[in-house]
């Protein structure tokens, strides 16, 4: 089933990407090409096959509960667009 313009707008919103109205069609078209191509997967029966999320067969390695980080606020905030009194600022968010 091809993706619709409405769906393109919905996923663009979820991904927080704005698309100009004039470009919607071209995105719709490209996404449909990509989806038609990945739809080839349907050719294979995968009933009962356990999905593989990761190639590694090792399990999670753990760290011990130690504080190993020092305060590096100054260095980290030197690359920040807007800060004040050590806080990151964004336009007002209304709860």
């Amino acid at each position: 089933m091809p993706i619709t313009e409405k769906e393109v707008r919905k996923i663009a919103q979820l991904a927080r990407i704005s698309i100009d109205d004039k470009d919607i069609c071209s995105y719709e078209d490209q996404l449909n090409k990509i989806l038609a191509f990945v739809d080839e997967m349907k050719a294979v029966e995968t009933e009962g096959i356990i999905p593989l999320a990761h190639p590694s067969e090792e399990t999670q390695k753990l760290r011990s509960d130690k504080v190993s980080e020092k305060n590096q606020r100054e260095s980290y905030q030197s690359v920040a667009p807007t800060t004040e009194n050590g806080l990151y600022l964004v336009p007002q968010v209304i709860e």
Partner: peptide
């Protein structure tokens, strides 16, 4: 802060 939300 005026017109801003601050993040900690």
């Amino acid at each position: 802060f005026e017109r801003s939300t601050a993040i900690d």
